[in-house]
Amino acid sequence: MHRTGTTRRGALTTTGAFALGAVLTGCGGGPETRTASGGTDARTASRRSGALRASAARDSASLLSGYEQVAAAHPVTEAGLAPLAAAVREHLTALGGPAKVPGGSPTPTPPAAATEARTALKDLAAEERRVADGRAKALLTAEPELARLLASVAAAGAAHAYLLTELAKETSA
């Protein structure tokens, strides 16, 4: 006897197809500002994107300064920090450099490096984690192109935090 009607497998397949279609067409209704005609207000989106990019660039500039301070204060860490600092420099370039937002604050200067190399590396790892977490949160309001960049830089920051923690374990006091 042949079964007729809706099967569980058919219902799941249909539901999955609808869900995939919604994701692929972008039916998410993000936090964009809409005009009366239903379109996105390009100026508002551009300002928001510019502010997010400038903030991310300031964070990268601050991180780079932290790397330089730790390397200068603790020469034993210089070889391990050089490739990570180079990556942060590339992130800063990709984000447009240390641009200022009109009315924004200048690039913050990180506190001086700790007197012990391990502590300085752990502090730098904590700062990388904090910045990566902030960038991950910013993804929710970023335009698609900037969101992809922020996601990539946040992932790199999380990897840097891990590597810095491991470097701290290997570094002599």
Score class of each variant (00 low, 15 high):
5 G>N: 01
13 T>P: 02
13 T>N: 03
15 T>Y: 07
18 F>H: 04
19 A>Q: 08
19 A>H: 05
21 G>R: 04
21 G>T: 14
23 V>M: 12
24 L>K: 07
25 T>N: 05
25 T>P: 00
25 T>C: 11
26 G>H: 11
26 G>E: 07
27 C>H: 10
27 C>W: 12
29 G>Y: 13
29 G>N: 10
30 G>V: 13
31 P>W: 15
31 P>L: 15
33 T>R: 12
33 T>P: 02
34 R>N: 04
36 A>K: 07
37 S>T: 15
37 S>A: 15
39 G>T: 15
41 D>N: 14
45 A>R: 08
46 S>A: 13
46 S>W: 07
46 S>C: 01
49 S>W: 01
49 S>I: 02
51 A>D: 11
51 A>S: 08
52 L>T: 00
53 R>S: 04
53 R>P: 05
54 A>Y: 01
55 S>L: 01
55 S>F: 06
56 A>V: 00
57 A>S: 09
57 A>G: 03
57 A>E: 02
58 R>Y: 00
58 R>P: 00
58 R>M: 07
60 S>M: 04
61 A>V: 00
62 S>R: 14
63 L>H: 03
64 L>V: 02
65 S>W: 09
66 G>D: 08
66 G>T: 04
69 Q>I: 04
72 A>T: 14
72 A>H: 09
74 H>F: 06
74 H>W: 07
76 V>K: 09
79 A>I: 08
82 A>R: 15
83 P>C: 11
85 A>Q: 13
86 A>I: 11
86 A>F: 04
86 A>N: 08
88 V>D: 05
88 V>A: 11
89 R>D: 15
92 L>H: 14
95 L>M: 10
95 L>T: 05
96 G>Q: 06
96 G>A: 11
98 P>E: 14
99 A>T: 12
100 K>I: 02
100 K>F: 06
101 V>Q: 09
102 P>G: 08
103 G>T: 11
104 G>L: 01
105 S>F: 06
105 S>P: 12
106 P>I: 01
107 T>R: 08
108 P>W: 00
109 T>P: 02
110 P>R: 12
111 P>H: 06
112 A>L: 03
114 A>L: 10
114 A>Y: 08
116 E>D: 15
118 R>V: 01
123 D>H: 09
123 D>S: 10
125 A>R: 05
125 A>W: 05
126 A>K: 10
126 A>T: 06
127 E>M: 04
129 R>F: 02
129 R>D: 14
130 R>L: 10
130 R>A: 13
132 A>M: 03
133 D>E: 12
134 G>R: 09
135 R>K: 11
139 L>H: 02
140 L>W: 03
143 E>C: 07
147 A>K: 13
148 R>L: 15
148 R>Q: 14
149 L>F: 03
149 L>N: 00
150 L>T: 03
152 S>F: 10
158 A>K: 15
159 A>D: 13
162 Y>P: 00
164 L>Q: 10
164 L>Y: 08
166 E>Q: 15
166 E>G: 11
166 E>Y: 12
167 L>W: 01
170 E>F: 05
